[in-house]
Simulated scan of single mutants.
Amino acid sequence: MKRIFDLVLAAVAGIFLLMPVLLVGIMVRLTSKGPILYWSDRVGRNNKIFKMPKFRSMQIGTPAVATHLLSDPDRYLTPIGSFLRKSSLDELPQLWSIIKGDMSFVGPRPALFNQHDLIELRTRSGVHKLLPGLTGWAQINGRDELPIPQKVALDIEYLQNKSLFLDTKIIFWTGLKVLRRDNVTH
């Protein structure tokens, strides 16, 4: 049922978001050198690595680590990178990952391949069995502000209570938080 929900919602979102996707792609191309999309190695269901697309918000050559681990993340941003991140527009290409089946709309956010502490905690708690999501319970309860153990605790809570109703609630709250730009650091 969840897969059908994801495919229908991705198709509807794809239709409504086609123009914004094209406009953001053009903006990325015009404001910085390099490809429009950045394909990030991420950890998916059962710790399988997959390529997750995002609109490129960082300069070419930025180290492949979580943004909070960079000494001065702002110096790596493209001219529109901060706007893309704060508005979450950089996430739009992940509709492709949802259609492909690498991601769901709701689930734990996919870890970077080198976030070993997060991967280990999720594996020990069984969260690694979930399909990662565009948004999740942790994202509406703190997003970038949460320490890893707290994120995993929220991922476990989602794992234990997952339902179509909870997914719909998370999507609704994600929309509100994105519009208000709650808990976004860069």
Rank of each mutant, 00 (worst) to 15 (best):
T67Y: 03
Y76A: 02
L92Y: 08
G44K: 00
V43E: 00
V65L: 09
I49E: 02
R56L: 11
V43K: 00
I99S: 08
P63G: 07
P73N: 06
L77A: 05
K54L: 10
M52H: 00
N47D: 11
D72K: 11
Y76D: 02
A66V: 06
K54S: 10
G44E: 00
L89A: 10
T67F: 08
L89T: 08
S97A: 15
G101I: 03
S88F: 12
K86A: 10
A66T: 07
T78L: 05
R45F: 00
I98A: 04
G101H: 03
I49T: 05
G81M: 07
W96M: 09
S57V: 09
R85Q: 15
K100M: 06
L95S: 13
L84R: 08
I49Q: 07
I80F: 14
S88V: 13
S97W: 01
K48T: 05
I80A: 13
P73I: 13
K48I: 11
G44L: 00
Q59M: 08
K100G: 08
D41V: 06
N46K: 04
R45M: 08
T67R: 04
R56D: 08
D72Y: 04
T78V: 12
N47E: 02
L84H: 08
D90F: 13
T67C: 05
K100L: 05
H68F: 14
H68S: 10
N46I: 00
F55H: 05
R45E: 04
T62K: 00
I80L: 11
R85G: 11
F50H: 06
K100H: 15
M52I: 02
G61T: 02
W96F: 15
S57I: 10
Y76N: 08
I99H: 03
L84F: 14
R56Y: 04
K54Y: 06
F55A: 10
D74K: 15
D74I: 01
M58A: 03
R85E: 11
R56A: 08
R42D: 00
S57A: 15
L89P: 10
G61Y: 02
K86P: 12
L69E: 09
Q94E: 12
S97M: 06
K51R: 15
T62M: 02
A66Q: 03
V65W: 06
A64S: 06
L84V: 14
L70G: 03
F83L: 15
E91T: 15
M52Q: 05
K100R: 15
P53A: 12
K48P: 02
L77N: 07
I49K: 10
P53E: 07
M58C: 05
S71L: 10
R85P: 13
I98M: 06
S82K: 15
N46W: 01
